[in-house]
Structures are given as C-alpha cells and as structure tokens.
Design a protein around this nucleic acid. Structure first.
Length: 458
RNA sequence: GGCGCGGUGGCAGAAUGGCUAUGUAGCGGACUGCAAAUCCGCGUAUGCCGGUUCGAUUCCGGCCCGUGCCUCCA
C-alpha cells in the first residue's frame, strides 16, 4: 500500500489510482535556456524514485515530463547568443538529457515539448474564452481569476490575499489584479505563432495544462514538481484545466519536493553558490550526486555542500565494496524485500530506505559473505536499484576519475604496484612506502589483500 | 503583513506515548612489516517553559531561533 503526502490536503493519503492498469503522472520539466542546476535535478531524481516504485506496483505507468522550449528567458538568451531558439534549445535539451542520464534518471514515457503543442494551447485558450473564463485585452488573452469560484485551493491563498500581497505593478488592461496571461503578443523580432488573437506566444502556465491534457486526459493521478511551483504555476494550471474541463479535477495527488540550499544559503546566481549538474559531475560520479539528493526526505529542504557530496561518495564506496564481495554479475532483476519497500511506500522515506541498505552492507561484511551469495546480492542490488543506484561494475566504480583530470593511467599505476611489490619482497619497506605515498599523493589508494594489491581512486 | 515548514548526538539524518535507527567523525582493540580496507567494542542527542499522562523527544499551548512562499524560480 502506497502512501503519499498530498499537497491538496496537506496529509499523507493512501494512493488509489484512477485506473490501476495505467497509472498516470505528470511532472514539470525544465525550461531549457541553460544547463540544469542541482535544484533542477532534485525533482527529476525524486520523481524517478517514485516512477520506479510505481512500476513495481502497477503493470503500466505513463510518466509525462515536459520540456519547456518556448519562454521569454529562452528568447532572451537566444538573442544574446545571436542564435535561434531552436538551436539553443536543441543544445540545452541534449545537455539536460545527458545530465539526467548521468544521474540514472529513467527517461519519462512521454517528453512533450511545448513548441509542438501550440495548437493544443490555442484550442484550450479558445475554450476558456468561450466559457467566459478568459478575455482578450490589447493582444493578450488573460485568465479571469474571479471567474473561478474556488481559485487558490492548492496554495490555500484567497484572491484578496494575493492582490494585497502583490509586489508587482498590475497591468492596466487586466480586469482583476490576479488575472494571469494565457497568450501574449510578440513583437515582429520576437518568436511567435499565429493565433486568433494575432501573432504571439503562450504564457507559461497554459503550456503544462495543454501538454497534460493531450497526453494524460482531463484527470490523472499524480502531478509533481518543486515546492515553488505551487504558486502560481500549479494553481494556475488547475484553474485553466478545470475551467476548460467543466470542473473536472486535474490531478488527484499533488506532490512537491523541498528546496535545495547550498551551505545553508538559497542557491542563487547572485550568491555565486550555483552548481550546475554538469560541473558537479566532473567532481563526483553521478550516483554520488544522486545519493546526495536522496539522503534526506524529498519534502524537506536539502542543504547541499561538497562535504555532503563526498559523504555520499564515501557511502557508495562502502556499498560497492560489499557488492564486490558478493559479485556484481550475474544479476536477474527482482523486487526488493518488503522490509525495504515499506520505507518507500511510506511517502518515499528514502533516508530510511538508505539505512536499510547500510544494514545489508554491514551484514555482508560482518558475516564475510563470500562471492556467489546470490541471496545477499539480490537483496543488495534490488534495494539499491530501487533508488537508482549501484548500476556499475565495482571495479570501474573504484577507478572513476574526475573528468579532464590528467593523473596516472591504469598502466602507470600497475607498473608502480609491480615496483612496490618487488621492493616489499626484498623487505625494502622504505622504498615500498615511498611508492605508496607517491601514489596516494596522486589520489590512488592501495590496498594489500590476501590475493594481492588492489587500488582505487579516492 | 498573510500563508507555511522546521529545531534530534561533532556532523548528516530517520523514527517513536515507554524498548533512543543508520551513516560519518572520535576513542579503544583485532588484522597488517606499516598502512588501507574490513571486523569487534565504546561514548555523546531530542531548542526553552508549561499542560495532559503512570510515563512526553513524540500529543496540546506559549516562547525563542531558523527558514520557505506571497505572480522569474525545481
């Protein structure tokens, strides 16, 4: 039985799918104007764990995660670069795919791109205008917030509070200060599409409503995204979709991941504490980054630091050490034991799930389980892979090298080890220790075992 | 001002009305030529003040502190 915290009710609820034969989930994907930063990666990784869990529970899961490839930031950036939005977004989308693959995030079932759904957006806007929920003003089409009686359900804000707290000047053509744009006009030099209201481009919120409708229908099971999207993005998505669909609920469960901070400051470009996934992947393996993102509960704020990343790497070193003991291959996919799964079923308690793996690893070492213990291996790998971890060969894991680092080649290291062995056999420990220290200075750690000397990069 | 979240050992981080995870760091020991890895053992925590209770870190109230959102934001 899966329990998830529903932002709509602010309670943990038992998950009951609309159609158990096809569970449907939508997660807001990136606006591709630059490399993904770590904050962008958190929801991807969090909902990837949920996607994997749902796939174990139900025969079919339709996971839709969009790419927003038309947005003012994209237009601005393309203009700065002197390139078309197509060339910019093709590049940034590829980078996003590469980064997420490095984090072991499975591709979604469908990955709609906003520019391919302009017609659907226009149709939805027309429907909203026809139903009296939207109006045209000075080339814009605006959603009229007072036309929806229960606007504000998700964020639990009343329209009056919103207007009172508004920090932004209200455009004079708005009927109500809370009204938001569905379609806006484009100047001749700006990207735009023809519409019944002239050449223009869609507002951000309508993109997700249209892509969700097209791929998942009027009502689906789970809608996810970052905490900051609750208002206004998700609130407005709900308003658009429900008003276009005669009140039908958009999603039964809303899930939001907490924010990421860096050294306890909110991650921001102005504070220069902004990490892109790409630069972090040069310093640590993707799985270490992924484990760092899963180390706390998904709804809690997560403080990221290089120390936290190193701690995650160290933990994986230990896990891979155990995996090496029970042998990496062969492995046939199987479901994790219920003791582990129970943690994930309880609103994705990844911390508890991780501690379960720690215990498995302890057990493998403590009992000195030997190679070929399939029960131990199956348990370890099924649990780890439920979290999207331990997909590598341990030998490769321990030889991981930061991108672009020159360092010693494997051949050079092996030659040094041979030289050290000769010195040790001659009991020339001064020389053997000198070689070991020299290697350590270059990040190569030697381990003398009964079967000889092995090495790893630390 | 409005709405919300949180304060657990040196650090990270779960859980729980009584049995106080897990990791890491620290200390002692085993193994090792010495290390590393691994093993064994040890210690230290529930922000403050009340209330309910046989018993509160857990439930309730107040206070203090931190933090997020209030139409760019994952």
């Amino acid at each position: 039985m899966l329990y998830i915290h529903n932002t709509l009710t602010r309670k943990k609820e038992e998950f009951e799918p609309i159609d158990a034969a096809d569970v449907r989930m939508y997660v807001c994907g990136p606006t591709v104007y630059d490399f993904a930063h770590l904050g962008n990666a958190r929801p991807i990784v969090v909902f990837d764990v949920l996607y994997r869990l749902l796939q174990r529970l139900y025969p079919r899961v339709t996971y839709v995660r969009n790419i927003t490839d038309i947005e003012d930031k994209i237009m601005d950036r393309a203009r700065e670069n002197g390139e078309t939005i197509e060339s910019l977004t093709a590049r940034t989308t590829q980078a996003f795919h590469d980064d997420m693959a490095a984090l072991n995030a499975l591709p979604p079932t469908v990955e709609p791109r906003a520019t391919q759904y302009i017609g659907d957006m226009v149709a939805m806007i027309e429907k909203l205008v026809a139903k009296g929920h939207a109006y045209v003003a000075e080339g814009h089409v605006l959603f009229n917030v007072p036309s929806m009686g229960n606007y504000g359900e998700l964020s639990r804000r009343s329209r009056d509070e919103l207007v009172a707290g508004a920090r932004v000047d209200v455009a004079p053509y708005k009927k109500d200060a809370a009204d938001f744009v569905l379609w806006k006009p484009s100047a001749p030099e700006q990207d735009g599409w023809d519409s019944p209201w002239g050449r223009g481009r869609p507002g951000w919120h309508i993109e997700c409503s249209a892509m969700a409708e097209k791929n998942l229908g009027a009502t689906f099971d789970i809608h996810g995204g970052g905490l900051d999207l609750i208002f206004p993005h998700h609130e407005n998505e709900i308003a658009q979709s429900r008003c276009a669909h005669d009140g039908a609920v958009l999603a039964n469960y809303w899930m939001h991941n907490g924010f990421l901070t860096v050294n306890n400051d909110k991650m921001s470009k102005s504070l220069k504490n902004f990490f892109t996934v790409r630069e972090l992947l040069a310093h640590a393996p993707g799985e270490a980054l992924r484990l760092a993102l899963l180390s706390g509960h998904y709804r809690s704020p997560l403080d990221f630091s290089i120390e936290a990343l190193q701690a995650a790497k160290a933990k994986l070193d230990r896990w891979y050490g155990a995996l090496r003991v029970v042998a990496y291959e062969p492995y046939v996919d199987c479901n994790p034991p219920s003791s582990f799964e129970g943690a994930l079923l309880d609103d994705m308690n990844t911390s508890l799930a991780i501690s379960h793996i720690d215990k498995l690893v302890n057990n493998i070492h403590a009992k000195r389980i030997t190679e070929g213990d399939d029960a131990a291996k199956n348990e370890l790998l099924s649990c780890a892979r439920a979290l999207g971890l331990l997909y590598q060969n341990p030998e490769e894991w321990f030889k991981w090298k930061p991108a672009g680092q020159s360092g010693l080649s494997d051949e050079e290291i092996n030659a040094q080890i041979a030289a050290r062995l000769a010195a040790r056999q001659a009991k020339n420990y001064a020389e053997s220790d000198r070689i070991r220290d020299a290697l350590a200075a270059q990040g190569v750690i030697l381990e003398d075992g009964p079967a000889g000397t092995t090495w790893r990069r630390g």
